[in-house]
Amino acid sequence: MAVYEMKAPLSDEDARKLRSGDVVLLSGVVYTARDAAHKKLNDLLDQGADLPLELTGAVIYYVGPSPARPGYVIGSAGPTTSYRMDSFAPRLHSLGVKASIGKGIRNEAVKQSLKDYGAVYFGATGGAGALLSTCIKEAEVIAFPEMGPEALRKLRVEKLPLLVINDSVGGELYVQPDLRAAGL
């Protein structure tokens, strides 16, 4: 397990060298999107319309932050559960998205798309939203402002602490529950 400092957008080379269990301190540009923003992006793609973000090398953070307090750029901003974005993730990876940040397990289709397109799935600590927000230095709503916490935001992050959960060669960090030990 290695520790890397990496810059987002992620290069293909950076994404492909990561292995599950690696720690990444990520700096650069990250986009926020939850279920509703993913659906909107998907609809825009269906219509052949321009997207409000550049997908090549993009890192998408599954988060709906709380409102910023005076003197802060953002409120608490920890990861939401990722499986709700599973139906959208493979298409975004096929178009250049190199990583998503969330918490919780992904389905087989997402894991396969990480292998197909050389991408990774990062985990951030769920329920540590105040702490993670200290790594966010700038935040700007760039699309869907009417959706409030679900709007698409462009963040500039510094050394956001992430764990590689699923890598581009089929590795996974989450443990399998020990059903036998629990008597199941």
Binding site: G64, S66, G75, S76, G78, G127, G129, A130, L131, P149
Partner: peptide
């Protein structure tokens, strides 16, 4: 940090 800054513990 939440207790010290007034940030909510979790964004949710």
């Amino acid at each position: 940090l939440a207790a010290g800054t007034g940030l909510p513990l979790c964004q949710d």
